[in-house]
Amino acid sequence: MRAAAAEEGIEFAEAAPQPQDSLWLDEAGFVSSLDVIFGHHKYTTHAHKLFQLLDSFSSGKVWWRQLICRLVAVGAKKTSTRAEVWKPLSEQDIKRLDHCKRETLVKLVCVEREDSFCYVAVSRGGRVGVYSGDMRLLHSYEDAQYLMMSASDRSLTVYDAATLSHTPLYCITGLPNIPTCMAYTPSSRSCDTSELAFGTERGDITLMRFLQPKLQLFHTKTPDAINYYFWMELPSPPHTSYCSITRWRKVHSRSVKRVAYSRGGIILVSCSHDATASVRIRHVPGKMDDYVFKVI
């Protein structure tokens, strides 16, 4: 046909070359690419097996579209399997958080330790509730302005709980011992001060009385950034205008497991695995003797 057309003076355009799919890799390149994606060589052996699985005709080449189709197929299969197992929730399975008073929850934080786990739920109106793993209400606070967390590096960090971002405001480092538990009693109509108590792994209990809690807890050097202080700085001005510190040594001979206030902050109860003073009830103003209970 081309020869006849040529005799008549008709020329055909040259056929366009067939596009070559260059998005393929050999086994070494495939394994190297996956190592780069994961950032380590932990799955090198799995990458070799995956290459052999995708290269069913032993051509020595694997295209990216093969990998994508494989991942999509596996994901769809697992999703359909989960869909078959999942059951619709009933009204009995839905937990209503009592502390928020039907306000919208803006944050749910998981707090996990070696021996305990709980949820901290914050509502839009500033109500904070602490829930156990099975969603039982343990503690609740209304109109919370601050959130304080302790760490094993002997530090206390205070966050702004009045906003959605929960930005850190203060960080107190260099505590004498590691805090193991905390309790807080807010200010009341008869008392403008509030108080924080925390136990340590050495059996001590420290009381931090905040003198202007509605204004701020500590002295603020930089309002636009987190303020770092050493624990030894707090007993000196200008911090003495905002807080005072009282330390009770050797309340228990072992680590303090929990502290709790009672009667509006007048009574402080602490417990430990201490065989001689398992539970101690102390009058915070110090006008009454301690009650000590031994649990065998």
Results as ranks from 00 to 15, higher is better:
Val109Cys: 09
Leu105Asp: 05
Arg96Val: 14
Val120Pro: 03
Asp115Gly: 01
Gly133Gln: 13
Val130Gly: 00
Cys118His: 13
Val111His: 13
Gly133Ser: 13
Leu105Asn: 09
Arg102Asp: 15
Val122Gly: 03
Gly126Cys: 01
Ala121Leu: 14
Asp115Arg: 05
Lys101His: 13
Tyr119Ser: 04
Arg102Val: 00
Val130Ser: 02
Val122Asp: 03
Val122Arg: 00
Arg127Val: 00
Tyr119His: 14
Arg124His: 00
Asp115Ile: 07
Arg124Met: 03
Gly125His: 01
His99Phe: 11
Tyr131Met: 07
Glu112Phe: 06
Arg113Asn: 08
Ala121Gly: 14
Thr104Gln: 07
Phe117Lys: 10
Val128Asn: 01
Cys100Met: 09
Leu97Pro: 08
Glu112Cys: 06
Val120Met: 10
Glu112Asn: 07
Cys110Phe: 13
Val120Arg: 04
Lys107Val: 01
Glu103Ile: 08
Val109Ile: 11
Gly129Ser: 08
Asp98Phe: 02
Glu112Leu: 06
Val106Phe: 01
Asp98Val: 03
Ser123Asp: 05
Gly125Asn: 01
Lys101Trp: 10
Arg113Ser: 07
Val111Gly: 02
Tyr119Asn: 08
Arg113His: 06
Val128Ser: 04
Ser116Leu: 03
Arg102Glu: 15
Thr104Trp: 04
Asp98Tyr: 08
Cys100Asn: 11
Arg127Leu: 02
Leu108Thr: 15
Val122Thr: 12
Phe117Asn: 10
Arg96Met: 05
Gly129Pro: 09
Val111Pro: 04
Glu103Thr: 12
Val130Trp: 02
Glu103Arg: 15
Val122Cys: 08
Leu97Asn: 07
Cys100Phe: 11
Ser116Phe: 15
Glu114Met: 00
Thr104Asn: 04
Val122Met: 05
Arg96Gln: 14
Gly133Leu: 07
Lys101Phe: 11
Val122His: 05
Ser132Ile: 09
Val109Trp: 04
Leu105Thr: 15
Leu97Gly: 11
Val120Cys: 15
Val130Lys: 06
Leu108Ala: 15
Val128Tyr: 02
Val109Arg: 02
Tyr131Val: 13
Arg96Leu: 12
Lys101Cys: 06
Ala121Trp: 15
Cys118Ala: 06
Arg113Pro: 00
Leu105Met: 15
Val111Tyr: 01
Leu108Asn: 14
Glu114Lys: 00
Thr104Glu: 11
Ser132Asp: 11
Val111Phe: 02
Lys101Glu: 12
Ser123Met: 09
Glu103Asp: 11
Ser132Glu: 01
Cys110Leu: 15
Asp115Cys: 03
Lys107Ala: 12
Lys107Met: 09
Arg113Ala: 00
Tyr131Cys: 04
Gly126Arg: 08
Gly133Val: 02
Arg127Thr: 07
Cys118Asp: 05
Tyr131Ala: 02
Lys101Met: 08
Cys100Trp: 07
Tyr119Leu: 13
Thr104Met: 05
Gly126Ala: 00
Lys107Ser: 11
Cys110Gln: 14
Arg96Trp: 11
Gly125Pro: 03
His99Tyr: 11
Arg127Met: 00
Ser116Met: 10
Glu103Tyr: 05
Leu97Asp: 10
Gly129Arg: 12
Glu114Gln: 07
Arg96Lys: 11
Cys110Ser: 14
Lys107Glu: 06
Tyr131Arg: 13
Tyr119Phe: 15
His99Lys: 05
Cys118Asn: 08
Ser116Pro: 03
Val122Leu: 12
Val120Ala: 15
Ala121Arg: 09
Lys101Pro: 02
Cys110Pro: 11
Asp115Met: 07
Asp115Val: 04
Asp115Trp: 01
Phe117Met: 11
Arg102Ile: 02
